[in-house]
Design a protein around this nucleic acid. Structure first.
Length: 491
RNA sequence: GGCCCUAUCGUCUAACGGUUAGGACAUCAGGUUUUCAUCCUGAAAAUCGGGGUUCGAUUCCCCGUAGGGUCACCA
């Protein structure tokens, strides 16, 4: 059996789109499942659209998401190859030199449009004797090489995702294979490369379906066997209008990382967009939705891919992220946050304070905050109160305390202070049950609801409406800081 | 407009032609909890429309409709 070889072939025309990660994920999983190879091919045959640094970013982002490749190629370094293969097609009569200018083409196109006709280009040079064409080429005339497309012929193939596909060559131009700048078009380059790189499965975007008949024709012209083609669905904007685009928020694969998403969460979300696990097929059972890349590689199969487009739902993505943050170990969470923070925050002060207080202190706080996190970027807000004393929060701003006489709240605070001052400096003998009991007693003494007493303490100590559990917070803050915070309310 | 593809809760999806059409996210309502969050329980929510085929269509076929893709010397 031939070795499975798949590829991901992005163009370095800007940041890698989040959809690109999904387009890379499927072939990557397919090859890993079958012990094959995954090829990264940079399709940079368009000199005009090339964006500096994009090629590197693609590699960095893929690495960050854990999608690794076995081989890498750049089409711009293979120009001679494409030219050679284009010439072969000239030799064999499957292609021809064509001399019309872009302007002439443009004119013909708009004329056809004006007459409400379909524009399907067949060059007048199509049947020019080869000698004559060669002479013009040698004389330095600008030319392109075009494929001789059959006048009208049914073409079909079995798409690994979409199923049976049928086309008619009458709808297809005489496709340009080699541009006048000597660069190949996508169509030539992709077929030649897939052949030379021995790609067995071509998984690519939905948008390529209409040009697949061209690729069939080119394969046939060379006398080559076709690889398996599978066209992946598109990811749509939340309103279902159009492919996912900037208008619904950042869509660069990198920006999700910057926003504090975990790569494995994004991957998990992405893999389920258009793919469902066979485990789901058991009617009535709770479906599994959490898959690591490794799990996915184990069970991925082309036949489980969906045929209709998906809408990008950030809420579900967030849910995945939350799941993955929750199961991170304390060490892992700390590392993830620190790495994220280093790259994505300019809060110099907090950075310094974190260093000053040391890793153990941070980890204690993170342990308390973990279940309140959705994104890594939620961390600073969660932890800041442990590093810097927040401004006082008025009791009147707290819903539960609004109707309570402030004097009574002060009594609660001062009573609590008495207990607190009884404690050792390091709060080593802290006993939550005991303290909880005491707070309740204080509340009873003033005929307050227990919740009110807790809330008064929370407000004075954390100065936040929502916070981690009170006693754990006090433990981390320490006796001194806690005492001072309470006293600020009593003065 | 030509060509191609698609169509199950708001969203992602499951269902050998026979199920009370299942699950997840989101929503809503309860419960646990010192706040928030977590967690638990429950509710509401779908087969685009019309024709066939069949004893029986979410499922197969046709026609509409809607959505998407594509029609470059861009990929």
């Amino acid at each position: 059996m031939t070795r499975v070889r798949t590829r991901f072939a992005p163009s370095p025309t800007g940041s890698l789109h989040i959809g690109g990660i999904r387009s890379a994920l499927y072939p990557n999983a397919l090859d890993r499942r079958n012990g094959g190879d995954f090829i990264l091919r940079i399709e940079d045959t368009d000199q005009n659209r090339k964006v500096e640094g994009s090629e590197q970013e693609i590699q960095d982002v893929m690495t960050a998401y854990g999608l690794e490749w076995d081989e890498m190629y750049k089409q711009s370094e293979r120009l001679d190859i494409y030219k050679e293969y284009a010439e072969k097609l000239i030799e064999s009569g499957h292609a021809y030199y064509s001399f019309e200018t872009k302007e002439e083409l443009e004119e013909a196109r708009s004329l056809a449009e004006a007459n409400n006709q379909i524009f399907k280009f067949r060059s007048p040079n199509r049947d020019m004797p080869l000698d004559e064409a060669r002479k013009r080429v040698e004389s330095g005339e600008q030319y392109v090489i075009r494929l001789k497309t059959p006048e009208s012929e049914e073409l079909d193939y079995e798409d690994a995702v979409q199923g049976k596909m049928r086309f008619n060559t009458a709808d297809i131009d005489d496709t340009i294979l080699l541009k006048s700048d000597g660069y190949p078009t996508y169509h030539l380059a992709v077929v030649v490369d897939d052949k030379l790189m021995e790609i067995t499965h071509v998984l690519r975007g939905f948008g390529w379906i209409p040009s697949t008949p061209k690729h069939i024709l080119i394969h046939r012209a060379f006398g080559w066997e076709m690889p398996v083609y599978g066209h992946l669905t598109d990811i749509l904007n939340p309103d279902g209008k159009g492919k996912l685009s900037k208008r619904s928020g950042a869509v660069a694969a990198q920006s999700f990382l910057n926003e504090g998403y975990l790569p494995e969460a994004v991957l998990n979300f992405l893999m389920l967009l258009g793919w469902s696990s066979p485990e789901e097929r058991v009617h009535g059972e709770t479906e599994r939705e959490l898959f690591t890349l490794e799990d996915f590689v184990e069970i991925f199969d082309l036949k489980d891919l969906n045929k209709s487009n998906q809408i990008f739902d950030r809420q579900k993505l967030q849910w995945f992220n939350k799941q993955y943050i929750h199961v991170l170990s304390d060490d892992a969470l700390e590392n993830r946050f620190l790495n994220w923070f280093k790259e994505n925050s300019d809060d110099q002060k907090l950075k310094e304070m974190i260093v000053e207080k040391g890793p153990d202190y941070l980890q204690e706080i993170l342990k308390l905050s973990k279940q309140r996190l959705t994104l890594l970027s939620d961390v600073p807000d969660q932890i800041i109160g442990f590093y810097r004393r927040p401004d006082k929060l008025a009791f009147s701003e707290v819903k539960q305390l609004k109707k309570i006489d402030e004097k009574e709240l002060h009594l609660v605070l001062s009573d609590f202070l008495i207990y607190l001052e009884d404690q050792d400096e390091d709060l080593a003998n802290w006993d939550h049950d005991q303290w909880e009991h005491q707070v309740r007693e204080i509340a009873d003494a003033y005929e307050l609801k227990h919740g009110v007493a807790f809330m008064a303490l929370r407000t004075a100590i954390t100065r936040a409406i929502a916070s981690p559990p009170l006693f754990e917070t006090i433990e981390i803050l320490g006796k001194k800081e806690t005492t001072e915070r309470i006293k600020e309310y009593l003065s």
